[in-house]
Design a protein around this nucleic acid. Structure first.
Lengths: 361, 361
DNA sequence: ATGAAAGCGCTAACAC
DNA sequence: GTGTTAGCGCTTTCAT
């Protein structure tokens, strides 16, 4: 209701002076005048209108982050990290779940552009879809020409600068660890094949096995959504196809945690009869039973560096992409392989029954 | 880069006409003219500047939601629900984690006001702090006079319309259920006492016990943060003080899930030796071991109704608050009480040791 | 049905 | 060091 000219009148100065004081400009203003403005603004409870400011400066101090699904614990942690880092740099965060829906994501990017957000962070892996990528490139051109920052936190368009992990190497490191434990029959709960991150992790699984002289058998991999539900159903499928497995690497912690449920129900002891590992190291890994061995991803550091890239881009620099390291965190869900060649027939039956019962707890 | 006047020129009409066509106004425009405008806008790839629009209409189509911590699985689900509901109504969502920090929350409210968000949803329980509440009321007055919507999803200022659950009754219903199972020594892992939701749940616990003729003993309640970490440490404390407990009601699922860890480590079988129940029914409850008995909260419905309130407020109505029901969901973490009076000395020692080891998994 | 013009609240030249 | 003024891109009277 109260505008800059009200403050100006009240302080007996021009609106330009008020703006210079209140916008944090480094324009010289006499100390006494400055105090008068500040006092008037305080007395009037003045809040500058950010829309008006954004309209003239073409900067909003808003950064958008696009994730697949904010309700996924991993993304929730990621968003939180971004929020803290953004705040520390004076930016606000807008979030959006794309649900891995290409159209929705594009629609969002257009909308964000019309809100003149300063930058967009892709925290979700790129969707492998031709027409999406073409449209995407067009939009990104708009962002570029307007001097807005586009940065990636996940494997996305290579042209976008970003701070990512090496999903392939990270997955391979976990497989290497399982090999060290003595496992040879290792299966994988892979993520959605249209997501680059999922494909990279799968590639890491395969290459690590090959490097150890083990053929990566197709029936030992099953694809599912990155969710607990996905993991729960997928593990039943996988063990039906490949009862010889002594270890399973899940492409996400959520999947691994989901897999624990039917295994527990069917009396398959983890890690005694079957080792299970996840990916991401969400906070929850420490709290499930057994605590989950997983690939630790340094989310906060990654987020911090991503924000640095955003700031650099906005300052006109052309920063280079970086990769941050991951490491295997050993907890209770992995151990040496069991001696028997196959999971007991009884366990297998119980697993099937669990699935037949609709996966009830 | 391209503005409404570019479109106007290209279509051979005035910018007013373009605005009328593109802003979805119901102002009459000849069909042929409308088509010409649409074609020109399409050809130019025109995106209206939302800041400019917001500056004149004083509406941004942005709704802010304030939660305590987006990385908490419960709030992550809540935010997701809001996101979907907001999108369905043509609004965008800005989120903010207040971390239960009064100053930060107030700062946010000011900032949101300066961004001219159409509404604010308090998804987090009010902080019991005098000076905070005074400042809060002032700010809310600003929101009111500017015709912006402020709605609550959690127990907050009673003056704010909202859709909430009855935390007291919900907690009592869980205690009633435990009583039905035969428990008499029931403890509680309560949340932060400065949060109204936590206090309401505690009150429900007490009143349910009293109604059953059981004195609610103070040493059977321990307060902790709503997190898994909080629950893990608190359960150790609680059982040290009250080894006679046969059941524990945790004020949040995260706490309950956290509590499972030390219990498992110490060999305290859940529910055989100790029943454990949570609150909220986050997706994860189904996947922990054992699956968690908890109070189901209809988040999506609640979120949907909250958005309805927001829309109603923005339309000038003064909708009334509503309460939605909750229900006890029985899963595997609760059962009849054990026969022994106390937890075994060995278990107690192991619990202590777990804590002494720094709560390592 | 359409256009001209006056702002919305702010910043950024430019003048003094 | 301070004030004047011209927009930023849009919506909205008010004419016509």
């Amino acid at each position: 209701v109260t505008s800059i000219s009200d403050v100006a009148r009240s302080a007996g100065v021009s609106s330009a002076t008020v703006s210079r004081v209140l916008s944090g400009s480094d324009y010289p203003v006499r100390e006494e005048t400055r105090q008068r403005v500040l006092a008037a603004a305080g007395a009037l409870g003045f809040r500058p209108n950010r829309l008006a400011r954004g309209l003239v400066t073409a900067r909003t101090n808003i950064i958008a982050v696009i994730v697949h699904d904010i309700s996924d614990p991993y993304f929730a942690e990621v968003v939180r990290a971004f929020e803290d880092e953004a705040r520390a740099r004076g930016y606000q965060l807008v979030i959006s779940s794309s649900d891995r829906d290409a159209d929705r994501e594009l629609e969002w990017l257009e909308l964000l552009l019309s809100y003149r957000v300063d930058g967009v962070i892709f925290a979700s892996s790129i969707i492998e879809d031709r027409s999406y990528q073409t449209r995407l490139r067009e939009l990104l051109d708009h962002y570029r020409t307007e001097g807005r920052a586009v940065v990636r936190f996940a494997p996305h368009l290579a042209a976008i600068p970003g701070v990512t992990i090496d999903h392939r190497a990270a997955a391979a490191s976990m497989i290497d660890y399982l090999l060290t434990l003595g496992h040879r029959e290792i299966g994988m709960l892979s993520g959605p094949p249209d997501l680059r991150a999922a494909r990279h992790r799968l590639a890491g699984y395969r290459s690590a096995l090959e490097a150890a002289g083990i053929e990566p058998l197709p029936h030992r991999v099953v694809e599912a959504p990155f969710s607990s539900d996905g993991g729960a159903h997928a593990v039943v499928d996988l063990l039906a196809r490949a009862p010889e497995l002594t270890a399973i690497f899940a492409s996400s912690d959520a999947m691994a945690i989901g897999a624990l449920r039917p295994l527990d129900q069917a009396g398959v002891a983890v890690p005694k009869q079957l080792s299970l590992a996840g990916f991401n190291d969400v906070g929850l890994c420490r709290y499930v039973t057994p605590p989950l061995t997983t690939v630790h991803v340094p989310i906060r550091r990654q987020a911090s560096e991503v924000l640095d890239l955003v700031v650099a881009r906005l300052a006109g620099a052309t920063p280079r992409s970086r990769t941050v390291g991951t490491e295997v965190v050993v907890r209770g869900s992995t151990g040496p392989p069991r001696r028997e060649a196959e999971l007991s027939a009884a366990s297998q039956r119980r697993l099937q029954r669990w699935a037949a019962d609709g996966g009830a707890p």
